[in-house]
Computed example of a mutant assay.
Amino acid sequence: MVYDISNGYYRVQDLKHPRAASNAATSYLDQFGKPIPENVPVYKNGKWAQTGVSKDVRQALTHFIDSGLCP
């Protein structure tokens, strides 16, 4: 568990991930403990393709706001 004091959010990091030491975005997990894929399928112009997960989407899936409800 990583806590960002200045911005008030938590993230869960998989320390066994090969790139965790470099703080790679792919080493952070979603609310269910699953890694966020680097690429996702998208249907565009009548065919399937792979596209990267944007920074905004990745942050929405991996940053958990500190609600202050826990003692």
Rank of each mutant, 00 (worst) to 15 (best):
A49I: 09
S6V: 13
F32T: 12
P37F: 04
Q31G: 12
R11L: 00
V12R: 11
D30N: 15
Q13F: 01
K44L: 09
A21F: 01
G33L: 08
T51M: 12
G33H: 09
A25R: 01
P35F: 09
S22D: 14
L29P: 07
A49Y: 05
P35T: 15
L29H: 03
V12I: 14
Q59R: 01
S27H: 03
P41Q: 08
L15C: 04
Y10A: 02
F32R: 14
Q13W: 01
F64R: 00
Y28S: 02
V57A: 11
G52Y: 03
D56S: 10
V42C: 01
D66T: 00
C70F: 15
F32W: 14
P71S: 15
V40N: 10
P35A: 09
P35M: 07
T26Q: 09
L69M: 11
K55W: 05
H17A: 12
S67D: 11
A20G: 07
E38F: 05
L29K: 02
Y3W: 10
Y28A: 02
I5G: 08
I36Y: 01
G46S: 04
F64G: 00
A25G: 06
P37W: 06
Y10W: 15
V2F: 11
N45K: 07
D56W: 06
W48A: 06
H63I: 06
V57K: 11
D66M: 00
G52T: 11
I5P: 09
K44D: 08
S67T: 10
P71Q: 13
H17I: 08
N39R: 12
N39G: 05
G46I: 03
K55N: 14
Y28P: 04
G52S: 13
P37Q: 04
